[in-house]
Amino acid sequence: MRTFTFIAITLLAGAIAGTILSTINQGIVEPFIEKAIALENQKAMSSGEMINPTQFENYRIWQKGGEIAAGTILGLSLGALFGLVFAYARDSIPASSNKKKALILAVIMLFVLYIVPALKYPANPPAVGDPATISYRQSQYIGFLAISGFSALGLAFLYRKLGKDGKHEAKKILVPAIYGAIMIVAYAAMPPNPDPITAPMDLVIGFRIASGFTMGIFWALLGIILGTFWDKLKPHETTRVRTL
C-alpha cells in the first residue's frame, strides 16, 4: 500500500463529504435548529432572562460558521475510520469496482454507526437535552455506539475467517443474526435517555428525519468519493512489473 496516497485520498474524501454535509445542513437541518432555539429563548425570557436580539443573531451566525468547520473536521475523522476499514475489508466485499465496494461499506457503516445507535438514542434538536445530564447522556451514547461498532468489527473478522469457498454459506445469515441479537440485548439492557421531551413532537420528528437524511447523504458521498479516488489512483498497487 502506498502510504501517502492512501492517507491523502482518505482524508480528502472525508473533508469533501464533511464539508458538503455541513453545507446542506444549512438548508435542511438548520430550520429545525432555529425553531428549537426560538423555543428555548421564549422559555428563557418568560423566566426573566434578558436576551439582546442583535447580539444573539450575531452569535447564531458564528455558530453556523462553526457548523461548517465542524462538518469538515467530522468528515476528516469519520473519513479516516472509513479509509482504514475499507483498506482491510476491500478484498472481502463482492463488487466489480472500488466505487461500488466503498458504497456498500458506507451503507453498512451508516447502519452500524448512525442508524442503530439512533434507534436507542435518537438525534434531538436544541430545547430537548438538559445541560445537567450531558455527561451521562454522552456516556450512554458512547457505550451503545461502542457495542454496535465493536460487535460489527468482531463479526466482520468472523465472516472473513469463515472463508470465501462457499462451504460456509450460512455465514450470510448467521453473522447478521448474531449482530442483531447482540444489539437487541444491548437495547433492552441500556437505560433510556433521562431527559423528557418537552418540545413539540412534530419539531423533534422533523429534526430526526432531516438529520438522518443528511447523514445518509454524507456516508453515501464518503463511499462514492473514496471509491472513485481508489479506482483512479490505486493506492494498493505498489509496483508495476513487466511480464514476459
Binding site: K64, E67, A69
Partner: peptide, 16 residues
Amino acid sequence: HEFYHDMRHAAGLPCH
C-alpha cells in the same frame, strides 16, 4: 462546544 453546537445536534450526538 458552542462553536460545534449545531453539527453536534445534526449528527445525532448528545448535546444540551
